[in-house]
Design a protein around this nucleic acid. Structure first.
Lengths: 220, 220
DNA sequence: TAGATTGTTAATCGATTAACAATC
DNA sequence: TAGATTGTTAATCGATTAACAATC
């Protein structure tokens, strides 16, 4: 256990660990070693041990990590031991898809409010939540202890929505718009724009790019 | 211009540059400096210059970068100067949302085939593309010069779909399922699972989390 | 005990940033 | 020319990996 500050790279691996641990738990596997974790998650075992050791001594030498205990600890670290209210802004295709994922997020995160700008959507329901006009966003966020905002509005509106979220005291934003949001220090923004991921994939296509040999041996 | 191998971090910034350059182009801005770029994109100007210099001498000392020229060059680097056919596997909410984004991707990437496992979806259309059964995936990918696959099937099916894509000779995969896919070297996989991004945001919520102090003296 | 595996330090590797000569 | 800005080297910073004593 140290008390350095934790890098974002480390934090982003925690949900990955948690996900796999949950699977082990379902399968009633009692313990797991950093080696097994590393194998399944394509990570170096030393890195996993180091990541976990930032937060405490969760493992037992010679044994590994108790699955249930580690789940509990990671959930604490990630603040998932309390319900976290989330707002979704933008009820288009993507927004609707995300709000349906809600069910999967049994991680104590819950979309409790949905906002949209277009009058014809307002008042209709997504997943039992009534779509509200963006005009009431600030009050609704303040009034419902909403701490995270998910932005799925079109590009050009994203910054404006972010500004309103910030004005409402939001603590973190997941931004699906392909825009670099400007927010004050203290508000955390994660980019979730998949077009960046998709387009960068194209770089690795073998279109005359000099690249290392790639054999087509299958992994079984 | 060097000829080292380019890191993934660099490659992932290229689409970000491209996006902003396209905006400048729309606004008919003729040139841009690394400093302006850095300001808008929250990046260090030296980093931007270094990134671009891996691929060529695109700038002019004292002037900056010609917007149109740089767009052209980055598009070449990213293989976007040719049409790239993409398959979408999984026509659920998310898949449908993505296929509608198709319009936005005027970057020469096109979803040309959609697959799904559920019989009731097969034959219906998304965005003018008829949904096909997964059984024909391998042949369809081979036959239509499809080079990238986007996986939006449920968790448990993701690896199986990936295996089929690999069997069909896919070159790259964008994976929305929260699973670490095992693929042979030479096939590039980018994770696009937003639950990881969302959950890791929770870490930064301030539940008393300047937490260099967080006692975990646990007696086992 | 013998084997396994952690937690942690040290070594390595890689990525970012600063600095500046070159030059438009 | 004077000011601006690149491309690139060197310095710094940070993250990953190797190694191993501790110990279950």
């Amino acid at each position: 256990m140290k008390s350095e500050k934790i890098s974002d790279a480390v934090v982003r691996r925690l949900p990955v660990y948690l996900r796999f641990l949950n699977e082990l738990s379902r399968r009633e596997v009692p313990t797991v070693s950093s080696q097994e974790l590393g194998q399944k998650l394509d990570l170096n075992p030393a890195q996993i041990r180091k990541d976990l050791a930032y937060f405490g001594d969760f493992g037992r030498k010679g044994i590994g990590y108790d699955v249930s205990y580690l789940i509990e600890k990671i959930r604490q670290i990630l603040n998932l031991d309390q319900q976290i209210n989330v707002a979704l802004i933008g009820a288009g295709n993507l927004g609707q898809a995300l709000s349906n994922y809600n069910a999967y997020l049994k991680d104590n995160m819950k979309i409790v409010a949905v906002f949209d700008a277009s009058p014809e959507k307002i008042g209709s329901q997504i997943n039992n939540i009534t779509i509200q006009p963006i005009e009431v966003l600030v009050d609704a966020v303040k009034g419902n202890h909403i701490r995270i905002g998910i932005i799925t509005v079109p590009d050009v509106e994203a910054q404006r929505v972010a500004d309103q979220l910030v004005a409402a005291g939001i603590e973190a934003i997941l931004n699906f718009a392909p825009t670099i949001l400007k927010v004050p220090a203290g508000v955390r923004v994660h980019a979730a724009d998949f077009t960046t991921d998709l387009i960068s994939l194209a770089y690795y296509l073998d279109g005359g790019k000099e690249r290392s040999e790639h054999d087509s041996k299958m992994v079984d």
